[in-house]
Design a protein around this nucleic acid. Structure first.
Length: 881
RNA sequence: GCGGGCGUGGCGGAAUUGGUAGACGCGCCGGAUUUAGGUUCCGGUGACUUAAAGUCGUGGGGGUUCAAGUCCCUCCGCCCGCACCA
């Protein structure tokens, strides 16, 4: 018989409606089964979903559907990261309100996601721009404030001149704003900060316990936090060199931070940052220094600027005393390579063992004295010339340190300096430093969560009362001029002080949108409240997220902020855990060829026809003339126009094909290349699977035979194939190796297809029918998490009245897979010469004899004696001659 | 510069974690069905010796081992992250 073609469009719509009507993906918090929380990073509602979303959500859905089948109470929610700049830009361009634009996008994208057939609990959908969401966030802000986790500080901040807002350090990429791409400027502003540095050590040390996170992400976070152990040393300034700075409090001593106190006898100079108070004080009396400081500030922070910048300094004329030699003076420079933000903003320079210091002394002729000799260096010839040595070794030229190792010398210097004093205080103390800075969250934007603070002339900064939350964004705003519409709104910011009742003004900054995404995974656990006050334990019940899936681009930003938030929420009594994401997976990008016409314009894949002639491929513009150049394969982007619209794919081939292809070709952590041929191939496979299931159904017949007591040989073989595939696919889904799952499904389908094809016209015995029925069920289960619509249609065809989406995962009979005989590979001197089928429990001796008796083995042994025979049970025999 | 990853057929990639290299898919070649194209089905497909039987083969070189894509050393190439962090 010839089965009908699987009608993708009708079937997919039918099953999606059936799932929705039966509400089978709705999650009940009270369900007693063990919980499993799968989450994919929620999207920004930009307008349309892209293929990256398809890949991300297809992966998450496989896990959700699989875990559901394995008997877990699965939470798999979706929401919208809905605040942000693009809504304001759209408002400016199209004269729409950001809210209107955002919600229209959400509606469009929700429809697209629904067309993918994802097993989401849509009843828990959230949008971060909903006052019902951000009122909790405002409460969190106030609780963090009360707990001492929020600070208001005046500081130098990264100012994005295009977006006209402040950016966090994490949001400055290569000296440019992460969104606008504009070179970031430094400005001094008063800002709200989350004190993420309170948790520097915890955030770092806990990384070790995140054993289900990619090593790469943990390393990136480790480097970002940037812990270093060192010594803070105070140097006394020689009063004779003070000159006009006499009496300046910041000029009597200079504190530096170093991780290399062992190199103190190699010191040649001191250097302070242009922003250091000492530099400022000296510059007030020295116009030339003031000009130098100004020049340093103008220097760019981009990669190119830093790489090409010369080490420059300005000699202040000040000198400090070497702690171990009262006669030894070190000159104090203001230097362009010293950062005020790290350590104390001042260093001592040891040129022999620090490349920057070496470059610096070469420019200013301050000399080089090596104090660490590498173990392999010849003492007679060892010198430092153009390359500093920063490795381990033995101390030289260092008086009482000579002969010690670097580590011993560090300890010795620390020990001595801790006991010495300068100005009545210990000269040095051990200190741990971090690169991590506090998280500045103030943004001078409208479309964000208002910071619930009132500024009062009498009372200072006053929190809005909890019962007055949320502080809502005003609706009547205009975007006809740059800047923050909240700031120039005629009435919104004028309120009575919550404390004294006098006229006061609201904080007009809104929160960084990364705050919104730092706790949304908590919000999903209970759609009715996010505070533990009403329903304690709900969040703790669901968290941590068992499997989180998203792009590597959030390795630091979102993932670090969320880890901080979880700790802060714990401190405030919301949660009782530290780590929000137990398992993390970062998936690769979707990439596509690029096309460029003769005029240099980018062409979209839909505007190009590609022809292959043997191994050469050529592209032509549709409806145009002239050659089209096929360019490199890159991340899908609007600018290169190499995007493919998921809607087009889904309407042409169906959601299952799109999902299947996204999962099939590449390992999930790697980039996947989108090709038309690949999608067509995936589509072909959906039809093949459908035909196979129809064939199986016709072999089994309408009445399923019960499982017989004994199976014949062929039936046993079929069962073994099915159970082996099932066991394999289980293991691979657990490891998120979806491409291997796909291959395993093909393998099983190929085998079953051959087996079905081998059946003639004669009636089929009951045991074989039973085996095929079982194998058919298993096959459908194996691809159901990936192609759920097709799986439902097949499930129904196989005579089931239930949803496969709700059916328990078949139990793989792993005993069945272990066959009674095994195949040994027989090698002579490590080269394969033959195969040997033996009983599973055959004694080693028998295996050895049988191997040596093989013709091919005897030929290869060439009449020599076997010197040794290695038998690895059930695997291999290696004859060594 | 520092840190990390990767390198397997024409292509995407498998390889029981030291035990048959190339599963599975794409592409290509041949055949069947078809008026034709498409679809579908069957067979082939790492290279070399035109067959048999072999030899070579996982970026290059070296090593450990009965046995190496897998472990070690070294060199080459590509990719990613960080950015003067004292």
């Amino acid at each position: 018989m010839r089965p009908e073609r699987y009608n993708v469009r009708e079937c997919e719509a039918k099953w999606r409606k059936a799932w929705a009507d039966a509400e089978i993906f709705k999650t009940d918090n009270g369900d007693p089964r063990p919980k499993y929380y799968v989450l994919e990073m929620f999207p920004y509602p930009s307008g349309r979903i892209h293929m990256g979303h398809v890949r991300n959500y297809a992966m998450g859905d496989v896990v959700a559907r699989y875990k559901r089948a394995r008997g877990f109470n699965v939470l798999h929610p979706m929401g919208w990261d809905a605040f942000g700049m693009p809504a304001e830009n759209a408002a400016m361009q199209n004269n729409t309100h950001p809210r209107t634009w955002t919600y229209a996008n959400i509606d469009a994208m929700r429809a697209q996601l629904k067309a993918m057939g994802l097993s989401l609990d849509w009843s828990r959908e959230i949008a971060t721009c909903d006052p019902g969401y951000y009122k909790h966030q405002q409460k969190l802000f106030l609780d963090f404030l009360a707990a001492g986790l929020v600070a208001r500080k005046k500081s130098k901040v990264n100012w994005d001149p295009v977006d006209q807002t402040v950016l966090a350090n994490e949001q400055v990429i290569d000296g440019r704003g992460w969104r606008s791409g504009a070179p970031v400027e430094q400005r001094e502003l008063t800002q709200w900060f989350f004190k993420i540095t309170d948790y520097s050590d915890d955030l770092l040390s806990s990384l070790d316990r995140l054993d289900r996170w990619p090593e790469k992400v943990r390393l990136m976070q480790k480097n970002w936090i940037g812990r270093s152990e060192g010594l803070s040393i105070r140097f006394a300034v020689d009063p004779a060199t003070l000159g006009p700075l006499k009496g300046e409090p910041q000029a009597s001593e200079l504190e530096v931070y170093t991780t290399r106190p062992d190199t103190l006898f190699g010191a040649k100079f001191m250097a302070v940052s242009p922003d250091h108070p000492l530099a400022s004080a000296a510059a007030r009396r020295d116009p030339a220094l003031a000009a130098f400081v100004e020049e340093c500030r103008r220097m760019g922070t981009s990669v190119a600027a830093i790489e090409t910048a010369e080490k420059k300094g300005y000699d202040t004329g000040l000198k400090v005393l070497h702690p171990f030699d009262p006669e030894w003076r070190l000159p104090v420079y203001v230097a362009n390579f010293v950062l005020m933000e790290y350590g104390t903003g001042a260093i001592f320079g040891c040129p022999a063992h620090d490349q920057r210091d070496l470059d610096f002394v070469h420019a200013y002729g301050l000399g080089v004295t090596p104090v660490v000799r590498p173990p392999e260096a010849d003492p007679a010839t060892f010198v430092i010339d153009k390359v500093a040595y920063d490795g381990a070794g033995v101390m030289i030229n260092s008086r009482f340190l000579d002969g010690l190792t670097v580590d011993e010398a560090k300890e010795e210097v620390a020990r001595r300096l801790e006991q010495m004093t300068v100005g009545g205080k210990p000269q040095a103390r051990r200190q741990v430093n971090y690169k991590l800075r506090d998280w500045g969250v103030s943004r001078q934007r409208y479309w964000g969560c208002p910071i619930p603070i009132v500024h009062c002339w009498n009372c200072g900064t006053v929190p809005v009362k909890a019962e007055d939350l949320p502080v809502r964004l005003p609706e009547d705003v205009s975007f006809d001029q740059p800047g923050n519409p909240l700031d120039r709104h005629p009435t919104w910011k004028h309120v009575a002080c919550p404390k004294c009742g006098e006229p006061a003004t609201r904080e007009t900054d809104t929160m960084d949108t990364f705050v919104d995404s730092s706790w949304y995974f908590v919000r999903f656990t209970d759609p009715h409240n996010a505070s533990s006050a009403d329903d304690p334990g709900i969040a703790d019940h669901w968290l941590a997220v068992d499997q989180y899936i998203g792009g590597i681009e959030h390795a630091i930003l979102h993932l670090l902020y969320s880890r901080f938030f979880t700790r802060a929420m714990k401190k405030c009594g919301y949660l009782n855990l530290d780590e929000p994401f137990a398992g993390l997976f970062t998936q690769g990008m979707v990439v596509h060829e690029t096309y460029r016409g003769a005029d240099g314009q980018w062409l979209a894949p839909s505007e190009v026809r590609v022809e292959a002639e043997g191994e050469t491929r050529r592209a032509f513009a549709l409806g145009g003339e002239g050659p089209v150049e096929i360019g490199p394969t890159e991340k899908m982007s609007k600018s290169k126009r190499n995007t493919v619209d998921p809607d087009d794919i889904i309407s042409t081939y169906g959601a299952d094909t799109a999902r299947w292809f996204m999962l099939s070709d590449s390992p999930p952590e790697r980039d996947v290349i989108w090709t038309e041929a690949g999608v067509q191939g995936a589509f072909k496979q959906t039809q093949r699977l459908w035909r196979l299931v129809c064939q199986i159904e016709s072999v089994v017949g309408p009445d399923r035979p019960p499982a017989p007591a004994r199976y014949g040989e062929e039936a046993r073989r079929i069962r073994t194939l099915a159970h082996a595939a099932l066991a394999r696919i289980e293991d691979e889904i657990e490891r998120l190796r979806f491409n291997v799952c796909v291959a395993a499904v093909y393998e099983l389908a190929n085998e079953l297809s051959a087996a079905v094809g081998a059946i003639g016209e004669a009636p089929v015995a009951d045991d074989l029918r039973a085996a095929f029925a079982e194998a058919g069920d298993i096959l459908v289960h194996c691809f159901a998490p990936m192609m759920p619509h097709l799986a439902e249609e097949c499930w129904e065809t196989l005579g089931h009245k239930t949803f496969v989406s709700q059916s328990p995962w078949p139990v793989a009979d792993r005993g069945l897979i272990v066959s009674s005989d095994v195949t040994y590979v027989v090698q002579v001197n490590g080269r394969k010469r033959g195969e040997l089928r033996m009983d599973r429990d055959a004694a080693q001796e028998r295996v050895e004899r049988a191997a040596l008796a093989l013709d091919a083995v005897r030929r290869a042994m060439d009449n020599k004696r076997a010197r040794r025979v290695i038998v690895v049970p059930h695997r291999i025999v290696n004859v060594v001659v």
